[in-house]
Design a protein around this nucleic acid. Structure first.
Length: 101
DNA sequence: TCTATGACTGGAA
DNA sequence: ATTCCAGCCATAG
């Protein structure tokens, strides 16, 4: 994984609005690596503190790190057993911010 | 609705 | 070369 890739992951993650969430797959796809969702997670593992890793979950609103549940709830997101309630409504699509041509 | 299972991906160790 | 990984999807039961 290139440093640029990580950097871009952090950049996108920081863009996630409070009270919204995104997914590893969506971010990976937005960066041009549709199948590198794992690398996003890997990058998040060593992300700086200013990156809200808790707003990045696995597909379908599943928390990869259950510890983040409390953080999400603190932002107004309802979580039921590692599952985000109304995930489809609060899902934030990074493609909307990274409109590439 | 849920849990397996398998194929896929590409970088790091 | 092999294994591991904070994933994703399709399919089967």
């Amino acid at each position: 994984m290139d440093e640029d890739f990580k950097k871009q992951v952090y950049e996108v993650a920081r863009l996630i609005p409070k009270g919204r969430v995104s997914t590893y797959g969506a971010i990976a796809k937005a960066l041009g690596y549709p199948n590198h969702s794992r690398h996003v997670g890997k990058a998040m593992g060593g992300c700086p503190k200013d990156v809200p890793a808790h707003r990045v979950v696995s597909s379908g609103g599943l928390l990869s790190v259950p510890e983040f549940q409390s953080k999400l709830e603190a932002e107004g997101i309802t979580v039921k057993g590692s599952r985000i309630k109304d995930f489809k409504r609060i899902f934030w699509n990074p493609m909307e911010e990274l409109i590439d041509e």
